[in-house]
């Protein structure tokens, strides 16, 4: 008797690849949103698998807040070069300079929210009809209700109460002029799945995910990295700690984990034992209970 079963990671992989191919078949101008974080790296790996031996038939798009970990940008550029893929970058700073977005002020100022403006402008400028994102349903409550194919109106907005039913593996990408889709091939993955997959497939990730010494300070129980544009409160002081990133996002709101993990095995062991969610370290989600839902309705990732 032959055994015809595959493990959960291969099944998730097969589903994601199927979604990527649907996107390439159903849309004219896709782009893959790329932040340099592990989810977008996995997304690109899956895209390569989906179309191999041909090249990935769409470009990467990075919405750059200007508040990055430097290592991320280098990793992004190296990856694009190695695989001969076009990487488009659009800057939040440009949206601010054009007066379309207003910089937040105060101690917790972040450009995370402003990315929405730049993203929607980029979609319009590049005439994209779909943007592939690495969002996962396990990340946050509002995301748990998102479809694989998430319809956006002409203002880029999400209407959570009026989503299209999504049945079996049939995906409806039909839309009117000016509307677009966000597609989330990793919808069914969890943080653990992503790490196990990176381990199984031996995917290269930025060193930021492994332990390193860094100047950090503690704000409301979250360790944040020192950066020139970050203001410190009087009570906050810089310390050098052994930390690693659990997620990589805008440096102003990416919490660091105190960790000595320096291999994928260590990370997987750590994730298995961890008692807080990945986004627990994300200051952007803590603003209110519906913070993510509100941002998504406006057109956030």
């Amino acid at each position: 008797m032959e055994k015809h079963n595959i493990n959960h990671l291969r099944e998730l992989e097969a589903e994601s690849i199927y979604i990527m191919r649907e996107v390439a078949a159903q849309f004219e101008r896709p782009a893959l949103l790329f932040s340099g974080g592990k989810d977008s790296i996995v997304m690109f790996h899956l895209a390569r698998k989906a179309f191999w031996p041909a090249k990935v038939p769409f470009p990467l798009l990075h919405i750059d807040t200007g508040h990055n970990f430097e290592e991320t940008l280098k990793f992004r550029d190296d990856l694009a070069k190695e695989h001969g893929v076009q990487c488009l970058v659009r800057f939040v700073q440009d949206s601010i300079d054009q007066g379309k977005a207003a910089e937040e002020t105060g101690i917790n100022a972040s450009r995370n929210m402003l990315q929405t403006v730049t993203l929607l402008d980029a979609i319009e400028e590049l005439k994209l009809d779909v943007a592939l994102g690495g969002g996962r349903r396990d990340e946050e409550k509002a995301r748990a209700k998102e479809r694989f194919f998430s319809h956006r109106d002409e203002f880029g907005q999400w209407d959570p109460k009026n989503q299209r039913p999504e049945l079996w593996n049939i995906f409806n990408g039909k839309k009117k002029m000016g509307e677009h889709f966000r597609v989330f091939p990793l919808s069914n993955w969890t943080e653990m799945d992503v790490w196990q997959y990176i381990y199984m497939e031996d995917i290269d990730i930025p060193n930021l995910y492994f332990t390193h010494k860094r100047e950090v300070f503690n704000r409301d129980g979250v360790w944040l990295a020192k950066a020139d544009f970050m203001q410190l409160k009087d009570t906050e002081k810089l310390e050098i700690k052994d930390v690693r990133c659990r997620t990589i996002g805008d440096i102003t709101c990416t919490g660091l984990t105190l960790s000595m993990a320096n291999s994928l095995e260590d990370i997987i062991r750590e994730v298995a034992a961890t008692r807080t969610t990945e986004r627990g370290g994300r200051a952007d989600d803590k603003r209110s209970e519906a913070a993510m839902e509100d941002r998504k309705k406006e057109g956030y990732f």
Binding site: R137, A144, K161, E293
Partner: peptide, 17 residues
């Protein structure tokens, strides 16, 4: 998950866990 659901105490859409 969604604000309306928390307010009304009912689930209004498919949520994945």
């Amino acid at each position: 998950g969604l604000r309306a659901e928390r307010e009304q105490g009912i689930t209004i859409d498919v949520a994945y866990r």
